[in-house]
């Protein structure tokens, strides 16, 4: 177990390093000279360009730049945003919590709704309610998140605020602030749930259907268990196991959803920050959000793997 843990954490660290290196490749190597991009459309002299290059460290050979970059990344230094003229990490720190709040709430709700509907659908497969819920899930899965967000916003009119996280004139006490944030969060949260729960529903449903052919369910029935006990004690727990991994594997989807939903609803989180960075384009900022978002998903996957080990005795032993 300890060795496995060490192996997993080691593997994750290598992946993280790979993400950081990919960030360098994407934002330093492919775009070419960042100084040209920064000064595009402005009259600058050759001396000014050279000075800017020296300040950014891009006059050195690529290998040396990479080493500097790695060293800085380890210290948590991802450079300074062109647009905000502030350290990238500081900006990310400010925007982290709104995203965690939004994605956390909607993921938990989506998982609960998706799994519950998935179990129901599989157990009564072919029934009207199963066909309707599966069909609806497929349709929602086909919807671009941002479009659904815009439609919801259009349909609800003035019922909910269409953007931001709080009104400026809300009283500063905790209760009013929380209610205000919750009010702002309704639409973005609904949008994300609507698109994400469909995945979980389909995965849980097919996983349970697969499990329902298992011989040990016949054993359970032969023992005299009632049908709902067969389902509750044997089929569902076993079908849940593969679903756990898939829930985490689909976290990338949640991140994608966060980017577009935050853009549509101007929710001041990492997604909106990414959007602001790509419209600039503010490459250091985009690099920062890229590394943080990718790193977060990788870390969550390590947790998923460890969780799976705890839950499934078959993997635990090997």
């Amino acid at each position: 177990m300890i060795r496995h843990l060490a192996g997993k954490v080691g593997g994750a660290l290598v992946s993280l390093l790979f993400v950081v290196a990919l960030g360098f490749l994407l934002f330093r190597v492919i775009p070419g000279d960042p100084v040209v991009a920064m000064t595009r459309g402005r009259p600058v002299t050759g001396d000014q360009l050279a000075e800017l290059r020296a300040r950014l460290g891009v006059d050195k050979p690529l290998t040396e730049q990479f080493v500097d970059y790695l060293a800085a990344a380890v210290r948590g230094d991802f450079g300074t945003s062109y647009v905000y003229s502030r350290p990238v990490l500081e900006l990310i720190g400010e925007r982290l919590w709104p995203t965690v709040l939004l994605t956390g709430t909607s993921t938990v709700l989506a998982v609960v709704i998706g799994l519950w509907l998935g179990i129901r659908g599989a157990w009564r497969r072919g029934s009207r309610s199963d066909r309707i819920s599966t069909g609806l899930a497929l349709a929602q899965w086909a919807m671009p998140t941002f479009w659904l967000g815009m439609l919801l916003s259009l349909a609800t009119g003035d019922l909910f605020p269409s953007g931001g996280m709080r009104y400026p004139d809300t009283p500063p006490d905790f209760l009013s602030q929380s209610l205000d944030v919750a009010h702002h969060m309704v639409l973005p949260c609904l949008t994300m749930i609507a698109v994400v729960y469909a995945q979980y529903l389909l995965v849980m449903r097919s996983s349970l259907l697969e499990e329902m052919h298992a011989d040990y369910l016949t054993t359970a029935r032969a023992k005299g268990l009632r049908d709902d006990l067969v389902r509750r004690r044997h089929a569902v727990p076993n079908a849940l196991l593969p679903t756990v991994t898939l829930v985490f594997l689909h976290l990338g989807l949640v991140v994608s959803g966060a980017i577009t939903v935050e853009t549509v609803f101007s929710w001041p989180g990492l997604g909106l920050l990414t959007y602001e960075a790509l419209t600039g384009p503010d490459l250091p900022l985009l690099q920062g959000t890229f590394v943080v978002l990718a790193g977060a998903v990788i870390t969550m996957n390590v947790f998923a793997d460890l969780l799976y080990r705890v839950l499934d005795p078959r993997v635990r032993a090997s």
């Binding site: 990338g252 790509l278 890229f290």
Partner: peptide, 19 residues
Amino acid sequence: DFFLVLPSLVLAIALSTVL
């Protein structure tokens, strides 16, 4: 496995921003 867990939209955004 590395690319599988990497959020694909984030990577696609990065690629299409720099190209």
